[in-house]
C-alpha cells in the first residue's frame, strides 16, 4: 500500500508521514529536509529547514533569513517516529543523501550525487537500504566520465595555450560546487585566477566556514579587463556570451559539464571548448551506487527516468519513475553539472 510507505510522492515533493517532513520539496511546507544548496533542491518559503552543517552557510547565503537547523554527517535525529540521518553524497561540499528509517524499513534519498571523490566534497558513502530514490541525470550509457585528473590536464593545457597566445581563458562553471572543484584543479603556475562575482560570493561563504580554497581575485568594476591576458576567469555559464566576457578582449571560452560529453550539445553551446566534468554520477557510477545499496525498490528521478527505470527492471529491480515537478532544474537544461 502506497500510504504505508516510509516515503511517498506528493504534489509538494517527497513526504515522510511518520515524521511529517518533506525532502527537497518544491512548494512551501512546514518542515523541509534539504540535501544541498542548489536552487532546484533548496527553495524559498519553508517554515523550517534542516541540512548538514557544511551545506547550511551556502543555503543561508542563497535564501537569506531562514529558520534552519543543522546536523553533521552520520548523526541521527528522531523526527516524529522516523530516524533520520544525513550522509555524504559527493555532489558538492555539504551535499547529503538522506536516510530515513521507520519501523526497521530504511529508505535513502540520494539527492544529487557522484561516486568519485573530487577532492573537495566529502566522498560518497554507500548506504544499505530497502528503497533507494536515485537521481539519474546522466542515466544513459553514453555518459561515462574520464578521471578528474585527465580533465584537469586538458583544462590546464587549454589555459596554457591561451596564455601563450596572450588570450584570456573564460571557463563557465556552475557557481556552487563545480567552480570550486575546478579552482582546486588549476595549475597556478600558468597565470592568475580571477572570478566572477557570483562565483566569488560562494567562495567567500565557503572560506568563512573553513573550506580551504586556493586564492582568487574577484573581477571588480574597476578591474582593468584589457590587462588580463593569460588569466583564467571562472564565471557562471550565462556570463560567457555577455558583454562582460567580451570586455576582456581576445578570449577563449569553455564550458564544463557532463553535457559536454555530447558533441551536439558542445556545438550548440558554441564555446571554443567543452570539458566533460560533472558533479553527477555517470552511467557506471549510478549502476554501482544502486547495486551497493542492496535495495530492491529503486525510484528514479531527474533525468532519463524512463530509459533508466526500464534498464533497472531488466536487471531485476523493482524500479519506478518518481513524478517530479523539478521543471526549472538548472541541471536538466545543461547549464551546469
Amino acid at each position: 500500500m502506497e500510504t504505508q510507505d516510509t516515503l511517498t510522492f506528493t504534489s509538494n515533493g517527497i513526504y515522510c508521514s511518520a515524521g511529517d517532513f518533506y525532502i527537497d520539496p518544491w512548494r512551501p511546507v512546514p518542515r523541509a529536509l534539504i540535501t544541498h544548496g542548489h536552487a532546484d533542491h533548496a527553495r524559498f518559503g519553508h517554515r523550517s529547514y534542516l541540512s548538514t552543517d557544511i551545506a547550511a552557510p551556502v543555503i543561508k547565503h542563497r535564501l537569506g533569513d531562514i529558520n534552519i537547523e543543522t546536523i553533521s554527517y552520520g548523526a541521527t535525529v528522531q523526527v516524529g517516529s522516523a530516524k533520520v540521518s544525513f550522509h555524504p553524497a559527493g555532489h558538492v561540499p555539504g551535499s547529503a543523501q538522506i536516510r530515513v528509517e521507520v519501523g526497521g524499513e530504511v529508505w535513502v534519498v540520494s539527492g544529487d550525487y557522484k561516486t568519485v571523490y573530487d577532492g573537495l566534497s566529502d566522498a560518497f558513502e554507500p548506504l544499505k537500504c530497502h528503497s533507494f530514490i536515485s537521481e539519474c541525470t546522466f542515466g544513459l550509457p553514453a555518459f561515462q566520465w574520464k578521471e578528474q585528473s585527465v580533465v584537469f590536464e586538458a583544462i590546464n593545457a587549454w589555459w596554457q595555450q591561451n596564455a601563450n597566445d596572450r588570450r584570456v581563458s573564460i571557463l563557465g562553471a556552475y557557481g556552487l560546487g563545480k567552480a570550486q572543484r575546478l579552482l582546486c584543479g588549476l595549475d597556478r603556475s600558468i597565470g592568475p585566477v580571477l572570478t566572477h562575482s557570483t562565483v566569488e560570493g560562494t567562495n567567500r561563504v565557503m572560506r568563512a566556514q573553513g573550506i580551504a580554497l586556493p586564492p582568487t581575485q574577484q573581477v571588480m568594476h574597476d578591474t582593468d579587463r584589457k590587462a588580463q591576458s593569460g588569466a583564467m576567469i571562472i564565471a557562471p555559464p550565462s556570463a560567457l556570451e555577455s558583454s562582460w566576457a567580451r570586455g576582456f578582449g581576445d578570449i577563449s571560452t569553455a564550458f564544463s559539464s557532463g553535457w559536454m560529453g555530447l558533441r551536439g550539445v558542445r556545438r550548440r553551446r558554441a564555446a571554443d571548448r567543452g570539458f566533460v566534468i560533472s558533479d553527477h554520477a555517470d552511467w557506471e557510477g549510478l549502476n554501482a551506487a544502486i547495486l551497493e545499496t542492496g535495495a530492491e525498490n529503486i525510484y528514479v528521478t531527474h533525468g532519463y527516468t524512463d530509459t533508466f527505470s526500464r534498464w533497472l527492471i531488466e536487471k531485476g529491480y523493482n524500479a519506478k519513475v518518481v513524478p517530479t515537478q523539478f521543471g526549472d532544474a538548472e541541471e536538466e537544461q545543461g547549464n551546469d553539472v
Binding site: L140, P141, A142, Q144, R263, Y304, E314
Partner: peptide, 22 residues
C-alpha cells in the same frame, strides 16, 4: 540491450558518436 543503445542514440543524435561513447 539493443533498445538501450537505441534510446541513447535518440538522445545523442548520431549513431557513430553513440557507438563511440558506449
Amino acid at each position: 540491450p539493443l533498445w538501450l543503445l537505441e534510446d541513447s542514440y535518440a538522445v545523442v543524435g548520431d549513431l557513430a558518436e553513440t557507438i563511440a561513447l558506449v
